[in-house]
């Protein structure tokens, strides 16, 4: 996974609260292999009319090239399905800005190079006053610049470092193999903690 520090792209505003991961990708698509691409499944039912046709009024249907999603509170709540992030990534999104996120969604996002940027509702209102033009997301400064405003966002330090470096956690963890082996040796003495059979 390549790291990144700054991202420039177009933004789209999806002013819905509690967009859960069942909406981000309905369960019926989750048996497909990732190599098929998940972009078409993003918000599959939400962005369509009752007759199954893409709704022309739906924000992300109007901004095909956007890579920054500005959303409502509690974005990505619910199921732990990482496929919700795959759908965002495969549809071209690299940053999601929201007042709050589901905890598991945030971890999943960072594990796939997507920045879950927490921003106050006031900050979001300033950004969405003028949606035209490009936005610049800076992980080091934790700011988003539009043509008319610069607004800061929150992101845990450890997550910013991980996104910037494009770290793979398994590689990092294997550097601690000795400490893991020591812990395991101690844990092994606690027989009760191991499955009996």
């Amino acid at each position: 996974m390549p790291g990144w520090t700054r991202h420039t792209g177009q933004a789209v505003h999806l002013p819905l609260e509690n967009v859960d991961t069942d909406q981000l990708i309905p369960a019926r698509f989750m048996s497909r292999p990732r190599s098929d691409g998940y972009g078409d499944y993003l918000l599959y039912d939400v962005r369509r009319n009752d007759d199954g046709v893409l709704s022309p009024d739906f924000p992300i249907n109007q901004n095909a090239g956007a890579s920054i999603l500005i959303a409502g509170g509690n974005f990505g709540s619910g199921s732990s399905r990482e496929a919700a992030v795959y759908a965002l990534v495969d549809a071209g999104f690299q940053v999601v800005i929201a007042p709050s996120f589901g905890d598991i969604f945030s971890s999943n996002a960072v594990n796939n190079g997507v920045c879950p940027a927490r921003m106050s509702r006031e900050g979001i209102a300033r950004l969405t006053d003028a949606m035209a033009g490009t936005f610049v997301v800076d992980l080091e400064k934790r700011t988003i610049n539009s043509d008319i405003a610069t607004v800061s966002f929150e992101l845990d330090d450890s997550w910013a470092t991980k996104l910037i470096n494009g770290w793979d956690d398994i590689d990092l963890t294997l550097q601690h193999a000795d400490q893991i082996a020591q812990y395991r040796a101690q844990r092994s003495k606690q027989n009760w903690a191991w499955p009996q059979n």
Binding site: S80, R81, E82, A83, V85, D103, I104, S107, N108, N111, N112, D156, S158, D169, I170, L172, T173, L174, I180, R184
Partner: peptide, 22 residues
């Protein structure tokens, strides 16, 4: 606690997980 697929792969490979204490 529940985890995503990348974390599941991490646990499979290492039996450990990186986590910030909430």
């Amino acid at each position: 606690f529940g985890i995503g697929a990348t974390e599941v792969a991490h646990v499979l490979a290492t039996q450990t997980l990186w986590q910030r204490k909430p």
